[in-house]
């Protein structure tokens, strides 16, 4: 009797030890960059690495939003915000009707289309980027918002159609049949029934589209060079050439923060999307 309760207690201790270990390993790099961003430059560069902050220095955060700093962080955030919002809305606007048509209506060749959308994802992005780079330059879209929004949208679209498809399939067919019996046309069906029912999916899709565009790095790296169209991720890379580590850390925190907040707040929705994928 005593033996089993001791074994059980040992098991619980081990479990909590494992939980703490996992917590530290996953969270430490994030903690580290925040810690770096609030220390003075000499302390960051000291061999005696501090693991617990003894003071909070906000200078780096003020500096990166300064006009005088080399990297226009505030401007790059506006750029990324514009591009990410445009991408999110455009992608969802194209993906929702397509997902509905492909899953609930008879589109000729729907299997090929859906299969093609999945297959694309397997291939390396650079396979498509080489000619796109030429096209973007020739069409005069280099260093423009459109030159970023179009590739972002296209890169996100196949995935978005799949995600929206899983939400469309969750709508019971009976609901649609009932609406049809009541004499609803396609337009009414879409705007009165389907889109309201899809609202959680559309919301998840907008979040996803925003995040994917916000973190995109390869496209701005290759399709832009001007500082006036700098995105946050590219700004981060450009500032890695800088020598102020504290400012780099602060910029990293600022860049990651919106995405981390969205994920933390909506982690339940994100889990749902993944879970839907498993059950399929």
């Amino acid at each position: 009797m005593v033996g089993t309760s001791l074994a059980r207690r040992l098991k619980r201790v081990l479990m909590y030890a494992a939980a703490v270990l996992v917590l530290i390993v996953t969270a430490f790099p994030l903690y580290g960059i925040i810690l770096t961003s609030i220390q003075t430059e000499p302390d960051i560069r000291s061999r005696d690495v501090a693991f617990v902050p003894t003071y909070i220095e906000t200078e780096h955060y003020q500096r990166i939003f300064d006009e005088a700093s080399g990297i226009p962080v505030a401007e790059s955030m506006v750029n990324s915000l514009v591009v990410a919002l445009a991408t999110a809305f455009l992608t969802v606007a194209i993906a929702v009707p397509a997902a509905y048509a492909l899953h609930r209506m008879s589109v000729p060749g729907r299997r090929v289309i859906l299969g093609g959308f999945a297959a694309i994802y397997v291939l390396p992005t650079l396979l498509f980027v080489l000619p796109l780079f030429i096209a973007v330059v020739q069409l005069g879209l280099y260093d423009t918002y459109i030159g970023l929004v179009l590739p972002y949208t296209a890169f996100t679209l196949p995935f978005m159609v799949w995600i929206m498809g899983s939400f469309v399939r969750a709508i019971p067919v009976e609901v649609e049949e009932m609406a049809r019996i009541d004499g609803a046309g396609l337009r009414q069906l879409m705007f009165r029934i389907i889109i309201p029912l899809l609202r959680p999916g559309i919301f998840a899709g907008l979040l996803l589209g925003f995040i994917l565009a916000w973190v995109e790095f390869l496209t701005p790296l290759l399709f832009t060079s001007d500082l006036s169209i700098l995105t946050v991720t590219l700004g981060l890379f450009r500032s890695t050439m800088d020598i102020a580590i504290g400012q780099l850390a602060a910029a990293t925190v600022i860049t990651a923060l919106p995405v981390i907040l969205i994920t933390a707040i909506f982690q339940r929705n994100i889990s749902e999307v993944v879970t839907a994928g498993v059950e399929r």
Partner: peptide
């Protein structure tokens, strides 16, 4: 917490691991 690294933009995760 386990979910968080996923939310870090790849470039940012590069920077924080450099650190």
């Amino acid at each position: 917490t386990v979910l968080l690294p996923w939310a870090v933009p790849p470039v940012a995760s590069g920077v924080l691991w450099v650190q």
